[in-house]
């Protein structure tokens, strides 16, 4: 009886395995189309995670891993004592905050207003042109923005001097305290039209009968926007807002690197830029890794938290 059961079990596992192989053989083309990329993702995306061990070592390039000196949490302790780190953290959070507020509201307002344009051809033209800057690189954008804000011949200073009667040009790019605002202005110049696409798509999805009902109730255009359009796109807005919270720590360094310079460094250096400076330029690999790891861990926690929150509110899952 017992052995019979045993036999039965081996037969089923055997047949399970053979069925598995049969499926694999059946799906050989699907496997050929996906396994190479699975290997690719392991090599290029998962192998680097192993590099996190460097954060707990005094990593010296060229030595095998088991000969590296392990130092435990030493680099993290140094990190949390470093004043520069807190400045970088402040800058990261400040720029993220501007992104979540100004960077969130501006595209919504733009989309709502654009939706009110009645001339379809004009509407299309404005929209098409508004997201043109999204497709140029930040290098080009930074080059253009620097030119617009420059002290010799920049159009902003021209206007300030000629129209508003300022006596000398404002050196925007070398005013440390202005950097955060230049950053958000640049970001808006480049991305407002692009971010507005999603809102416009959501606005199109609002039930047209609601507008009709609102009109019958005697609502004007502003009240239609306020009572129909805005509530209609609120679910999308909530998801996007929560998602942005998830990206709080991830402002990156591209924009700051290109728009900043050594004069405004104290306001432009984000955590990524800090990690780049220490990690690669100064070859303090372990320290740089510790910074990156701190940032990743906080990011992951935030994303999970944001996702949970979105789910609870019932606006759909993000991940």
């Amino acid at each position: 009886m017992n052995s019979q059961l045993e036999l039965h079990r081996t037969v089923t596992t055997k047949s399970k395995i053979s069925r598995h192989f049969r499926t694999l053989a059946d799906q050989k083309y699907l496997l050929m189309m996906s396994v190479p990329f699975f290997i690719w993702v392991i090599i290029f995306r998962y192998l680097p995670l192993y590099g996190w061990t460097m954060a707990f070592q005094n990593y010296k390039p060229g030595k095998p891993i088991f000969e590296q000196e392990w130092v435990g949490l030493e680099h993290f302790k140094i990190l949390f004592r470093e004043q520069d780190f807190y400045i970088a953290l402040r800058n990261t959070l400040a720029m993220s905050f501007l992104g979540i507020t100004i960077g969130f509201v501006t595209p919504i307002v733009f989309a709502l207003l654009l939706n009110e344009v009645r001339n379809m051809a004009f509407k299309k033209t404005v929209q098409t042109i508004s997201y043109l800057p999204h497709f140029i690189s930040w290098v080009i954008a930074a080059s253009m923005i620097t030119q617009m804000l420059s002290t010799d011949g920049g159009v902003v200073n021209d206007i300030l001097m000629k129209v508003f009667g300022l006596e000398r040009p404002v050196p925007f790019m070398s005013m440390p305290k202005a950097f955060w605002f230049i950053y958000i202005a640049a970001d808006m110049w480049k991305e407002v039209g692009w971010y507005a696409i999603i809102h416009l798509a959501a606005i199109t999805g609002v039930d047209q009968e609601l507008y009709e009902a609102a009109r019958v109730d005697g609502c004007g255009r502003l009240r239609k926007i306020w009572h129909v359009t805005l509530p209609g796109i609120t679910p999308t807005l909530i998801v996007m807002l929560i998602m942005n919270i998830g990206w709080l720590m991830s402002v990156g360094f591209e924009r700051q690197f290109l728009l900043g310079n050594h004069i405004v460094e104290n306001y432009s250096r984000t955590i990524d830029l800090y990690a780049l400076n220490y990690g690669i330029s100064m070859a303090r690999y372990s320290y740089g890794t510790a910074i990156g790891m701190f940032q990743s861990v906080v990011s992951i926690v935030l994303v999970i938290f944001a996702n949970r929150l979105a789910k609870r509110i019932g606006s759909g899952q993000i991940i």
């Binding site: 995306r45 460097m54 990690a275 990156g292």
Partner: peptide, 14 residues
């Protein structure tokens, strides 16, 4: 991989 990445230096080392 959309949410977790090694970061600057581990990527470089890899």
């Amino acid at each position: 991989t959309m949410y977790v990445s090694g970061g600057l230096i581990p990527d470089y080392m890899n």
